[in-house]
């Protein structure tokens, strides 16, 4: 586990997108995914260093979610390889990739609607050799749902469901956490809660890849940003540079600028 990085990192001079001297945790090599005639992900070399919070941005259809699904094994690549911690994941089943230390939260909330909050957390937790009751209490606290432990997940608000999902993924103690739009459709307060949650997990040494549209949120959590456009990596670098880049503004930020 790397030492907490927090704000100091963001004040460092612009470094390569892999995050300087830290070791590479995740790398894709020439990763490609075709859907019929459409190439959703096109020869992407994407790498994330240990201890980073990397944000993936880009216009709709840029291939962000597809890239995450290729990493978790939800989709099989048409070409290319995926390496995690030096291990070749390509062709492994999803559950085996999870066991190497990857967790994921999909775009739309995927909690077990018919189970209670506590039961939802038990599902991932019971697979680990952690002290279930202790971690359960800690996690409920961390995602601020302790008072709703017995509540059915279907009765949670959108924001609560998103927090619960992050909590479920966190119980596995992943080295790398993939989050697809963790604050989509959330209120300002809820967004703040999630940002705090991510920063605190990051302080504990967790590496993140976050797909997000909300630039305000990206600015709060991220050091390095990768811009995808039409399945290719368009730009990569510190958030300030990306936001200042005219081409990026044109393809993406232009919409809300």
């Amino acid at each position: 586990m790397s030492a907490p990085e927090d704000i100091n990192v963001r004040q460092k001079p612009a470094v390569a997108a892999t995050g300087g001297g830290r070791s590479t945790m995740l790398a894709t090599k020439q990763l490609t995914k075709n859907f019929g005639g459409l190439t959703a992900v096109d020869s992407v070399d994407f790498s994330v260093a240990e201890g980073e919070i990397r944000c993936l941005i880009g216009p709709n259809g840029a291939g962000k979610s597809t890239l995450l699904e290729l990493i978790t094994g939800q989709l099989d690549p048409s070409d290319g390889d995926i390496y995690f911690d030096g291990e070749d994941l390509t062709g492994l089943d999803t559950h085996k990739r999870i066991d190497t230390g990857i967790s994921v939260k999909f775009q739309s909330p995927h909690v077990y609607e018919n189970l209670t909050v506590e039961e939802n957390l038990r599902v991932p937790l019971q697979r680990t050799d952690r002290d279930v009751e202790r971690v359960l209490a800690e996690t409920l606290d961390r995602i601020a749902l302790a008072e709703k432990a017995e509540t059915g997940a279907s009765e949670l608000s959108h924001g609560e469901k998103q927090r619960l999902e992050i909590g479920m993924a966190v119980t596995l103690e992943p080295k790398l956490m993939l989050l697809d739009e963790p604050v989509a459709g959330m209120s300002v307060d809820e967004t703040d809660d999630v940002a705090d949650l991510i920063r605190s997990l990051h302080d504990d040494g967790m590496t993140f890849v976050v797909v997000e549209h909300d630039m305000e949120f990206v600015r709060r959590i991220s050091e390095q940003v990768t811009v995808l456009n039409q399945g290719k990596i368009f730009r990569q670098g510190p958030i300030e540079e990306i936001e200042a880049d005219e081409d990026v503004r044109r393809i993406y930020l232009g919409e809300n600028a």
């Binding site: 978790t72 939800q74 999803t94 559950h95 999909f106 995927h110 189970l115 599902v123 479920m168 596995l172």
Partner: peptide
């Protein structure tokens, strides 16, 4: 815990796989 796993599979197979279940 196996019963809990069964219910998780019933409720959402794809999600359950992403918690490392085969």
């Amino acid at each position: 815990s196996f019963g809990m796993t069964m219910v998780a599979v019933r409720e959402d197979e794809a999600r359950t796989a992403t918690f490392g279940y085969n």
